[in-house]
Design a protein around this nucleic acid. Structure first.
Lengths: 142, 142
DNA sequence: GCTATATTGAAAACAGTTTTCAATAATGAT
DNA sequence: ATCATTATTGAAAACTGTTTTCAATATAGC
């Protein structure tokens, strides 16, 4: 968490932006929360720390965290973007249960390799990718 | 195209819905268009055939085409869902150029296999998946 | 043709996000 | 510390893509 604060810190300095208590609160709340959070969920958590922080500021700050490489915006096809931690987290794909909504993260070098190969065959330079597998988790299959 | 009309036809009958000229026009326009079309783009094409058809009807009809298995809704991360042909088209992944927006379709059995394996290892029953690789195409790399 | 009701298009409502704007607050210079 | 500059904030308004509402219309079965 110290490291992440430092990253935001230098990003803010680099861009000529300013430190604010709101940004600190939002970063802290985001980092201490697990899983994939929508802006709405994040705002609800943030308000528990400081009810005066508006959702506009959460939107703006999450954009900032994305740009600084601390957060990653992911989409699971329900139209609601969510944010997950990015710093110190290897890239992974998502297995989403269509019944309970739970989401498993899967990192596998083979997939990345295969994508690289397919891209190269088509003279395409891959920069990043997203993959979601939708299905039923163990508990929901019965 | 005859086959697709037949599919919509029986889907409409099966569901107790009704045939309308609007639905026919929209299906025809969708089938004769190439690539990945947003509702807005589709509506523009449809209006060339019949200016009285509203965008609401295009939304409703595309939902119908999806449900009947003729169309597939795909998302490329820019927040604008697009539709592509589904009937007689094998599942494929998308390579999207982040500069020019062009989109290549890639079908590869290896990826599906790998996904199956990973899913099974996690006691997860995969139903469908989407994968997008973002990068630079040959022309845009220079 | 007649009836029941699905469909239509326009407008309104809606949801999530972004912009606007006046008030506030952080930063660097003094 | 004080001041001047200007980034930031929160609320409200605007915006965008989509869905719902509703009265008018059109379809399908009798």
């Amino acid at each position: 968490m110290d490291k992440e604060c430092e990253i935001l810190d230098s990003f803010i300095r680099f861009r000529g932006l300013r430190h604010t208590p709101q940004r600190n609160v939002i970063l802290r709340v985001f980092l201490s929360a697990e899983g994939h959070l929508s802006v709405e969920e994040l705002h609800a958590l943030v308000k528990k720390q400081d009810r005066s922080i508006g959702y506009t500021t959460v939107y703006r700050t999450m954009k900032l965290l994305s740009e600084s490489g601390l957060a990653d915006k992911v989409e699971f096809g329900d139209g609601i973007p969510r944010y997950e931690h990015k710093y110190n987290h290897r890239h992974h794909d998502h297995f989403v249960c269509v019944k309970c909504g739970k989401c498993f993260e899967v990192a596998h070098a083979g997939i990345e390799k295969l994508q690289e190969t397919l891209a190269r065959e088509r003279d395409f330079t891959p920069l990043w990718h997203t993959m979601q597998v939708f299905g039923l988790c163990k508990g929901c299959r019965g």
